[in-house]
Amino acid sequence: MKFVAFERKLQGTGASRRLRHAGKVPGIVYGAGEPVSIELDHNALFHALKKEAFHSSLLDMELAGATTKVLLRDYQMHPYKPQVLHVDFQRVDATTKITKKVPLHFVGEAESPAVKTDKGTVNHVITELEITCLAQQLPEFIEVDLSGLTMGHSVHVNDLKLAPHIKIVTHGKPNPVIATPVPAVVEEIVVAAAPAPEAKGKKKK
Rank of each mutant, 00 (worst) to 15 (best):
D93A: 13
L63W: 05
V92R: 15
Q83M: 11
L71Y: 11
Q83C: 00
M61V: 07
H86D: 07
V84G: 00
A64P: 00
H78N: 14
H86P: 08
F89P: 01
K81T: 05
K69D: 03
T67D: 01
L71G: 03
V84N: 01
P82Q: 09
Q76E: 05
K69R: 14
L71F: 04
T67E: 14
T68M: 02
R91C: 10
H78G: 09
K81R: 10
V87E: 11
T68L: 11
L72N: 14
Y75W: 13
P82A: 04
P82W: 08
D74T: 09
F89W: 05
Q83E: 09
Q90V: 10
M77D: 02
P82E: 13
D88L: 08
M61P: 05
G65I: 09
V70Y: 08
Y75G: 05
V87L: 07
T68P: 01
E62G: 00
E62W: 07
L72D: 07
H86Y: 07
D88N: 15
K69C: 02
M77T: 06
D74L: 11
A64T: 08
A64D: 15
A64H: 07
R91M: 07
L85R: 12
A66Q: 10
Q83S: 10
E62Y: 09
V87F: 13
E62R: 10
L71H: 11
E62D: 11
V92M: 09
V87W: 14
L63N: 05
R91S: 04
V84H: 00
Q76M: 11
A64E: 14
R73C: 01
A64N: 14
Q83K: 13
H78D: 04
M77F: 00
Q76A: 02
V84T: 01
F89S: 02
E62P: 06
F89G: 01
L59F: 02
Q76R: 15
L63G: 01
R73T: 12
L72M: 14
E62F: 00
T67H: 04
R73W: 00
V92E: 10
E62K: 13
D88A: 05
Y75I: 09
Q76F: 01
T67S: 04
D93V: 06
G65L: 06
D74S: 12
H78V: 11
V70E: 09
A64I: 05
Q90D: 03
V92H: 13
E62L: 15
V87M: 13
M61R: 12
A66P: 00
Y75R: 14
E62C: 03
D60F: 00
K69G: 03
Q76K: 10
D74R: 15
Y75M: 09
R91K: 15
K69H: 07
Q83R: 12
L85D: 08
R73G: 03
Y80G: 00
R73Y: 02
K69T: 06
Q90M: 12
H86L: 10
V84Y: 03
L85C: 02
D74F: 07
R73H: 04
T67L: 09
L72S: 10
D88I: 10
D88G: 02
H86F: 10
L63T: 05
H78Y: 03
P82K: 14
V87Y: 07
Q83L: 06
G65S: 06
K81I: 11
L72K: 15
P82V: 06
H86A: 02
